[in-house]
Amino acid sequence: MDQENQFRALLQENRDRIYRICCGYVRDENTRQDVFQTVLLHLWESLATFRGGSQVSTWIFRITVNTCLGYLRTQRREQRMRTEVEGQMQHAGVPVAPAPAETCQTRDDIGRLYDCIHQLPPVDRMLIALHLEEAGAEEMAEVLGITPGNARVRLHRAKTALLEIWERTGDGLE
């Protein structure tokens, strides 16, 4: 199979799960689509060098998680720049429009789940996002570069933290 067909097949099978992981990192719909497109770009670029050393799903998870981590960095830079510019504008007496509200255009419980996930630290977000995509401890460990035991312990802690946030905002997850 040539690269284009391989990519098409990959896209067909994994498009939605990649998008769902992006949902765990990015709240704003437009930005999420940008990050999603960037993940696809990295998949395309890395496809030629994929030798099957790991499972396809692990390879995809790695690229998605790393791209989302990259997004978190640029997001912080943008926030800093926005604060600086707004400070300068206020200093100059220019009225500052409020930043557009971040939206998670998903339905009820799912929207609420993502709101809760977004309150978790980045590493916990990774673990929960992978857990929701049915990744086991071994796979999580391969994606993050930690031991499976550590992945299990961390996932347990992340789930506990998520449950606490969920309970604070309504009924509990079991």
Binding site: H42, R62, N66, V143, L144, G145
Partner: peptide, 13 residues
């Protein structure tokens, strides 16, 4: 290289 584990990816970054 976006295909490496997150830990190595961050070390490279």
């Amino acid at each position: 290289d976006y295909t490496q584990p997150a830990r190595s990816f961050l070390a490279a970054a």
